[in-house]
């Protein structure tokens, strides 16, 4: 009887150990991926919904303003500058930072160029006096 209870005890101890290891592993996986696996599904949800928003908003744009539409979308697609700023952010200089700085410059050309040229186009559209 006591043998069985001993075995049971050691078995439950082992089970406890395995459970501990498993939870440690799970947390370390979660750390390395930064909860990333969750984000993919979340991100795809956002992407799909945003496509629907885009679909309805863009169809409501009057054909006369399709050129300014391209100007604006060109400017706002440069929101990629968010990634460029994070890349260029660290203090220590390395190749990664230089890539980031180049991307900041390219995106800035687009942001300013896109919004300015769109504004120029739109300021020309006038109603009949």
């Amino acid at each position: 009887m006591s043998e069985i209870s001993n075995q049971l005890e050691s078995l439950s101890y082992k089970a406890q150990q395995i459970a501990n290891e498993a939870s440690q592993l799970a947390s370390s996986v979660a750390e390395t991926s930064g909860g990333h696996s969750d984000f993919i599904i979340f991100g795809i949800t956002v992407l799909v919904l945003a496509c629907f928003v885009g679909y309805y908003v863009v169809w409501s744009v009057t054909p006369a303003l399709h050129s300014p539409l391209m100007g604006v979308t060109n400017a706002i697609s440069s929101v990629i500058i968010v990634g460029a700023l994070l890349a260029a952010g660290p203090v220590d200089s390395n190749i990664s930072k230089y890539f980031g700085l180049v991307a900041v410059t390219l995106a800035a050309v687009n942001i300013f160029g896109g919004f300015v040229v769109t504004n120029r186009m739109l300021s020309m559209f006038k109603k009949k006096q």
Binding site: F39, V46, L47, V53, G54, Y55, M70, I76, G83, L86
Partner: peptide, 22 residues
């Protein structure tokens, strides 16, 4: 997606669908 940033995903989808519709 790389940055886990919704702003980029939303804006990208807007621009992407705009270009596709045009």
């Amino acid at each position: 997606f790389t940055l886990s940033n919704n702003l980029l995903i939303i804006t990208g989808a807007l621009v992407g669908s705009s270009g596709a519709i045009l």
